[in-house]
Computed example of a mutant assay.
Amino acid sequence: MIRIFKTEDGTIHEKKEMQPGSWIALTNPTASEIMDVADACRIDPDHLKAPLDEEERSRIEAEDEYTLILVDIPSIEERNGKDWFVTIPMAIITTKDVLITVCLEETPILSSFMDGRVRDFHTFMKTRFILQILYKNATQYLQYLRIIDKKSEVIENKLHQSQKNEELIELLELQKSLVYFTTSLRSNEVVLERLLKIDKIKKYPEDTDLLEDVIIENKQAMEMTSIYNGILSGTMDTFASVISNNLNIVMKFLATVTIVMSIPTMVASFYGMNVLPKGMPFADSPYGFWIVLGFAVALSLIVAYIFNKKDLF
């Protein structure tokens, strides 16, 4: 899908045709759309296709007619009826006349610009627009990290009352999201550091300060990711040990109950053998059954008392 925007009189407007100073937003474009934009803007089609590969790495490529900036952005992926966090590539291509963004799916990072919710945003100020996108990307990571933190707290509360593996699996999914974030943020950091050294990208006095703000936000996101990842790892290890310990307690209790209950069975087995009544204790007594039953129960109670003293119940 192709959408074209241009800032006029301080507000964003959607256009039907490409114009100098406009922003071309490609969202999961078709092959024909890629070729149309590539021909119109004299861009290598492979650079427009690069962000459509989920495994594409973040980088900067400066060509004669344009500059390609490829970064990873956070995204939400639905699996098994639940939302999890991943990262996908997004390309920002700046030419002499227009700025182009290419992404596999719609993202709130770009939607905020399309809806006019970003202040001091102008499509013709391409360098500042790039930095504003990168700043919004870093803040989006921070927002998703806070959601991950809240989700982990909810799952942790469930784990206090549950011995199932579902909660641990959910924590594992959150940890996978943090791994994706860590890898992507480190790649983005390399891109941002390189932006500081490219004079071609910096055209306005405020751009250097804005770029430094982007780098600071990105570093903060990296630190938060590292902290949350460490907390999740410790939580998973702790609750895995708790679940294993609870299982051991249950097995110990069942084994103790089995031993205590087996004593009357053993006594009854001895008296149930096919031997002559002569010589069997209480065989001739009218109260023999109750005496043997009482003996078995008393023996079981003694064993249960001993086990209870040893804290086996």
Results as ranks from 00 to 15, higher is better:
G272P: 03
A240T: 15
F121L: 12
K49E: 10
L254T: 07
D64R: 12
N229T: 13
K164E: 14
L99P: 03
Q161Y: 11
F239A: 06
V154W: 08
K49H: 07
L299M: 15
A255D: 10
E156G: 08
A50I: 09
T101I: 11
D36S: 13
E33K: 08
R186E: 07
G288V: 04
E173V: 03
L185T: 00
S244K: 08
H122I: 06
K151H: 10
L210R: 12
H160D: 13
I215C: 05
K310S: 12
L26G: 01
D120E: 07
S269E: 12
F239R: 02
V267E: 09
L174T: 00
A91S: 15
E189A: 12
A138L: 03
Y228H: 10
P277W: 03
E223S: 07
T30Q: 05
D39H: 13
D284S: 15
S58M: 05
E56G: 07
L110D: 02
N165V: 07
Y305Q: 13
E63Y: 15
K164A: 13
T101P: 06
E33F: 03
K150G: 11
L299G: 13
N248Q: 14
Y141P: 01
L168T: 03
L68I: 04
S22V: 00
F113L: 02
D209A: 13
I43M: 00
S233N: 08
F313A: 12
E206Q: 14
N248P: 12
N229I: 01
I147Y: 10
E106D: 14
K310D: 15
N308C: 09
L174H: 02
V98S: 00
R3N: 14
T94G: 12
G230V: 13
S244A: 15
L70F: 05
D39V: 03
N308V: 08
V102E: 00
D199M: 07
Y66P: 01
D199A: 07
P51T: 09
F181D: 09
I12N: 06
K151W: 06
N137G: 06
S152R: 01
E61C: 12
S75C: 13
L211E: 02
K203Y: 09
P89A: 12
I34A: 00
V260W: 02
E223Y: 07
S184V: 10
E8Q: 14
Q220M: 06
C103G: 11
G288K: 05
E189V: 04
L211C: 08
F270K: 02
V102S: 01
L196W: 09
A221G: 02
V303I: 15
E189W: 04
G272D: 08
E78W: 11
I227C: 04
V292G: 04
I43S: 00
E167I: 01
I2K: 12
Y180N: 01
R128M: 11
A296H: 13
T127F: 09
H122E: 14
S111N: 13
I231N: 00
S112P: 03
C41N: 05
I249W: 03
P45I: 10
E217D: 12
V292F: 12
Y287P: 06
F129G: 00
I306Q: 11
W23P: 00
S233D: 05
Y271H: 07
H160E: 14
V257C: 09
